[in-house]
Simulated assay, not measured.
Amino acid sequence: MDSGFPNGDTCHITEESFCSGRQYHHYRPGRYLLPNDTAEQEREEVKHLMLLQLTDGAHFLAPIAPSNLRKVIDLGTGTGTWATEVGERFPSAEVTGTDLSPIQPDWTPTNVQFFVDDIEDQWVSGDDFDLIHARHVLPFIKDPAALTRGAIEHLAPGGWLEFQDLGHLVLCDDDSMTPEYPIKQFFDKITAAWGTFGADLRVGPKLEGMIRAAGFVNVETKRFKLPIGAWSQDAREKELGVSFQMVIEGALEALCGAIATVEGWSKEERIEFTERCDKAIQGREVHAYMYCYFVLGQRPEG
């Protein structure tokens, strides 16, 4: 059976690994459990646009005046789109993106740069930042509390840390969802599979406590509801739901492979579960949703 968790030896940072027909990063393999191929990059772009829909176009919610935004770092930058757009929007800021995968574009604005770096190790990309941003990263970190404690040392006095992460818990406010709903089962099972790797997929609601414990002040959590699918009668929520449906659909195949590995499923069982999830997410009878957490904290001025 093919493993849903790619692994291998550390090698040249530009090399890639392949598993079940998908491409993965090969620098410090196994640290990030999703592919980095074209299909995954396209899914990340949909996710990026979805969060901009959610925030009415704001790339971050930290209350920083543009004149005070000198240095920004985007941890786990992925395709680099967030960092590039922030660099374009704030041309006087120096913007750095770091990731395990060198998949960012060759051309960037002159104030944007990218590094291949492991943020769970000692950072090679500097300090004295006015904003440290990490989006969809903390669920992949084995010790997010340690990362949070370390982040405060890389901030300038008065600088801000902002985490943006999905809760990965499927919720419903009426009786339209049963425990057998395949999408609920999918997120429950992948959360359990993630745990075997040593990471907490549902770290989102815990981030505020971690940030407070690390010594940040002015800590705040802003929670947004993301419908799963096009079931809402509200036009904006329906648009968000369609985007989120695309995000989930794009991850089903790869993540069902990880579930199958942990649960010992046969190829037929894996295919059957994936097909049930595909069918379920296209329906509109279940009014399911998930929260997205934006958690902010400021390094004390003194």
Rank of each mutant, 00 (worst) to 15 (best):
F216I: 11
V295Q: 00
G229R: 05
A214N: 03
H287S: 04
H25Q: 11
R299V: 08
L226K: 05
R236H: 14
P182F: 09
V116K: 09
E153L: 13
P102C: 06
M246F: 03
W82G: 02
R276I: 01
L33W: 15
L100D: 04
L166A: 13
Q122E: 14
E16Q: 14
A199K: 05
Q104W: 08
D188F: 12
K184M: 05
D74W: 07
N36W: 11
L255D: 03
L161R: 01
K267T: 15
G158F: 02
E45T: 15
F115C: 08
V95T: 01
L252M: 04
P139C: 04
V286M: 07
E268K: 15
G198K: 09
P109E: 10
T77F: 04
V95H: 01
D188K: 07
M50N: 12
L131E: 08
D165C: 10
E220Y: 03
R223H: 01
P66C: 04
A93G: 03
T110A: 15
A83N: 13
Q122K: 13
R28C: 08
P35S: 06
R28G: 01
P144I: 03
D200I: 06
Q282M: 08
D278W: 14
R223A: 14
M210H: 05
T221I: 00
M50H: 02
I152H: 00
V137N: 02
V124G: 13
F294Q: 04
D128N: 15
L161E: 02
I132Y: 04
L69R: 02
S125K: 06
K189S: 12
T84H: 10
Y291R: 06
Q41C: 09
G159C: 04
W265N: 09
T14I: 09
T14N: 11
D234T: 08
D99G: 06
E88M: 11
G195R: 08
S101L: 11
Y293F: 12
M1Y: 15
E94V: 14
M177T: 04
Y24M: 07
F294G: 02
D118W: 08
Q164A: 09
W194H: 13
F163S: 05
I13Y: 15
R43S: 07
I152Q: 07
D117M: 07
L166K: 03
F163D: 02
Q233P: 08
A260E: 10
S176T: 15
L171K: 09
Q122G: 07
A134M: 13
H154N: 09
D165T: 08
D174N: 05
H133A: 00
S125T: 15
G78A: 10
G8I: 13
Y293W: 12
L155D: 04
H136D: 14
L61G: 02
N68H: 05
Y27H: 10
G297A: 04
T110F: 14
P35F: 06
F197E: 12
M50E: 01
I281L: 11
M1D: 15
E40Y: 01
G302T: 12
L240A: 11
L166Y: 05
I211E: 02
Y27T: 06
D128E: 12
